[in-house]
């Protein structure tokens, strides 16, 4: 196995493109190293992107936030502006693993690892985040929901890697939230999760909503019916019940060691309702 630590994105893309064997990008490494330990992957090349300029930066502009691919999740919560704008995203990212893992893991890695249970992914999709992808041939931007295509599979082509995640600027009277269900209070993988992002009008009516479920299908699910269920409402009980029903109806989960189909389907609705309440309160100016 070779280990490379290039200082430019171009060089990194070149290394990834040229490698004939199995090449992996290393940012936080909290998934990759576990897989290596288990013998699930045996890389021929690891390209560590942490020495590339900008990869560890969070940039704020009028257009929103650009979060470098090597920014550890803990750094997100240390950024006051980001935490204020996208509390749901920051909370989601800081639910991944332990404090130790949060000191290393990245949202880009969480996304590219392509686990259906990834915590930050539903929150990013709900927020309407995009990713910047670079290759030797150039760069492109895609919506986060278009990156994961299956369990452990992404739409990234050989020689491509994610350089940053871009979150839009926070709209007035909007708010996001992320909740996951785990049996313990910490250290678990989401059994089912839900992110909600809502915008309100001056009267507190929901004008826009994005509702995303995690761990109930092979990828995170953007549930349009769930959003429709609450748009045009003030999140009254009837709207919440419709939201929950729409989320449960959208689930396509499996039975596994972490949960059953029945459990995931039911709890998806419960979490959606609870996450919507938080997002709604935040949009209304409550923290």
């Amino acid at each position: 196995m070779r280990y490379e630590m290039p200082t430019t994105a171009k060089a990194a893309a070149g290394l990834l493109a040229k490698e004939k064997g199995r090449a992996f990008v290393l940012a936080g490494g909290t998934d990759l190293l576990v897989k290596m330990k288990a013998g699930v992957v045996e890389p021929d090349l690891i390209v560590d992107i942490k020495a590339i300029k900008g990869m560890k930066d969070i940039k704020k502009s009028a257009g929103g936030f650009v979060i470098g691919a090597a920014v550890p999740c803990v750094a997100l919560s240390e950024n006051a502006a980001l935490t204020k704008a996208w509390p749901g995203v920051v909370e989601a990212a800081n639910l991944i693993g332990s404090k130790q893992v949060q000191g290393r893991c990245t949202m880009s890695g969480n996304l590219c690892n392509a686990s259906p249970a990834a915590d930050s992914v539903p929150a990013l999709i709900a927020a309407g985040a995009k990713v910047s992808i670079i290759s030797a041939k150039g760069s492109r931007k895609v919506a986060v929901e278009d990156v994961t295509t299956g369990v452990g599979r992404t739409s990234l082509k050989k020689g491509e890697f994610v350089t940053a995640i871009e979150l839009p600027a926070k709209k007035p009277k909007s708010g996001d939230a992320y909740l996951r269900f785990i049996p313990r209070t910490e250290m678990d993988i989401a059994v089912v999760s839900c992110a909600v992002n809502v915008s309100l009008d001056a009267k507190g009516m929901i004008t826009k909503a994005r509702v995303v479920l995690g761990a109930v299908a092979i990828t995170a699910l953007l549930v349009k019916d769930a959003a429709s269920a609450i748009v045009g409402t003030k999140l009254d009980d009837a709207a919440k019940a419709k939201l929950a029903a729409a989320c449960s109806a959208a689930c396509k989960p499996i039975d596994d060691k972490r949960g059953t189909v029945e459990f995931r389907t039911e709890v998806a609705g419960v979490l959606a309702r609870r996450a919507a309440e938080i997002a709604y309160a935040r949009a209304g100016g409550k923290q």
Binding site: P183, R184, T185, E186, M187, D188, I189, K257, R258
Partner: peptide
């Protein structure tokens, strides 16, 4: 693994 064999953590 300790990930899915869930012994109590401090916050539990």
């Amino acid at each position: 693994a300790f990930l899915d064999y869930r012994i109590p953590v401090c916050s539990d």
